[in-house]
Design a protein around this nucleic acid. Sequence first.
DNA 1: TGAGTTTACGAAAACGATTAAGTAAACACC
DNA 2: GGTGTTTACTTAATCGTTTTCGTAAACTCA
Lengths: 336, 336
Amino acid sequence: MATIKEIALACGVSAATVSKALNNASDVGADTAQRVRNAARSMGYFPNAAARALKTNRSHNIGLLFADATNSGLAHEFFSLVLNSLKEEAERHGYDVTFISRDIGLTNMSYLEHCRYRRCDGVVIATVLDWTDPQVTELAQSDIPLVAIDYVFDNRGSVLSDNVQGMRDLVKYVYSMGHRKIAFIHGDRTAVTKMRLASFHRTCDELGLKIPDEYVIEGAFHEPSASARATRELLSLPERPTCILYPDDYSFLGGMNEIESAGLSIPDDISVCGFDGIHLSQVLRPRLTTVRQKTEQLGSEASAMLAEAIESGKTFLPHRIVVPCELIVGESVKRI
Amino acid sequence: MATIKEIALACGVSAATVSKALNNASDVGADTAQRVRNAARSMGYFPNAAARALKTNRSHNIGLLFADATNSGLAHEFFSLVLNSLKEEAERHGYDVTFISRDIGLTNMSYLEHCRYRRCDGVVIATVLDWTDPQVTELAQSDIPLVAIDYVFDNRGSVLSDNVQGMRDLVKYVYSMGHRKIAFIHGDRTAVTKMRLASFHRTCDELGLKIPDEYVIEGAFHEPSASARATRELLSLPERPTCILYPDDYSFLGGMNEIESAGLSIPDDISVCGFDGIHLSQVLRPRLTTVRQKTEQLGSEASAMLAEAIESGKTFLPHRIVVPCELIVGESVKRI
DNA sequence: TGAGTTTACGAAAACGATTAAGTAAACACC
DNA sequence: GGTGTTTACTTAATCGTTTTCGTAAACTCA
């Protein structure tokens, strides 16, 4: 509202001096600086972000790429929580968060164009439908600082939830409870699924478990119906698994219904595990044994890393932070 | 990337002409306009949002005020879905969405200051902890176009979910199924709760139902534990209700656990209803009878209304849109 | 005291767009 | 053909900052 010029006028100095005083530049007298700052405060001054962005070519704004699809994306508590901590940490560093999408207004821009239009200082890619989407790779190959969550782009920063360790801990725990016939309903074919699947097989190998092919079924993240279908398949096998691992806590609900309507009880007749450790998992009875992903840390590390990339001026900062998962032992796995 | 000047140079015209051609101004020749537009496209031109904002004093950005608290807010599917449609509709109108918060960076700004700093063209208040927070009222009394969701500020636009009608439909339905002893666990003391509570009582009156005081208990939105506690109270009453209405679908989970661990079955021993109609409600077995709030419509109406307020230049646009709720009949209410 | 250095400030250009006002050419019209 | 009106452009100012460069005053020191 008040501008630098008005402050300059009020203080009897030039606009340049005001700007410098406000930015703690070295060549301003201590008393003048103080006077200016006082005036700025009392006149309710805040810098005009647009003017500053125009001049400095820095918007103090970071773009956030979130899946466009409605079924997953924002509705998924995992992502909501990541977004929340991402936003808070970004703000702590002085950045605002703006959603990036294609096709804003009438014109259709690509993700990259949208970022340029808004002069985003950096971008966090939290989740997209397809990481090989040309528009996504275009963005990843641009000169905009970028951090991806749960994905690795060449030469780019990434924050990864340690799905491999999480899955290993889960399988080992289930094994330690005496289970040998362990089934795994995995998510749709994404990078995360690949990691969990690989970790599942490797851990079973280490434990000397032979897992029959029928025990590993494709489901889908956040889709109870897919888990329901897969659960039906598993329950109808001649040799039923004693424990089923689900793609995620939410989609487990589909399996839960299926198990109950088959007249079976959890965990007495069959044991189950989720993944994610969202609030829901600890509200269900029996409490779900699951793997908690540290959403707060994923989000805040991503923001911090991006801020560092922006401020260091190094567009390409191939840092990689791996955030451990945490096994949550509930009551859904029975010792046998 | 490419600027207007570069296009001007390439086309052999002045920057002003380029600007006008790109903005479909009247005083540009048809052929020149075409030439300019072609050049702009081929040179990958996109306007510099900062420069434009500086000059026009319009940022094409709307601020979004979302609760700071973590327990509800973004993690609640209701708000996630509202946010999602809000964002999509805003983008359709050419606006980006930026989160507004206090205390960005080191400085601590108020919500209003944050909006001014970012030169937001308008603000949507989706949910806050406390609508009487001085910072919120300051914003509501400012000259920034504003639309609130599920709240009414004097002289401001608002989009309201018809909680009154939703609750009435629900109670009438439950009544029509033969229930007379209907309990209501309501949410914490918010505007929404007040509406539902009032509608509950009025509808019961209309139906000639006398609801004992013990049947109306305070719970909390999105908090299964509160619903669990309230459910315990209700189940221990000498005269148990035959149907319990919960604050929302999610918090019902707490009640569900309590009912099951009391050895009761839904809906044979006791009927239950939720509110919200989130995905979860239709995944549970039995499917929950609930009231769906049209989140997509709430979000998109809010964006559309705000866009209109901005574009009409009328800061104060006391429109009020009421979005009806929809009764979803599940299997959780038994005919008695 | 005079030359060199430091300190504290100001003047002015620039970022990339928009827009009011000005102008030259083309056209209309009797 | 002169006058008036369109049409199609250009010039230049402006939005609110930042930043480079310049400079006057003050200080240092032999």
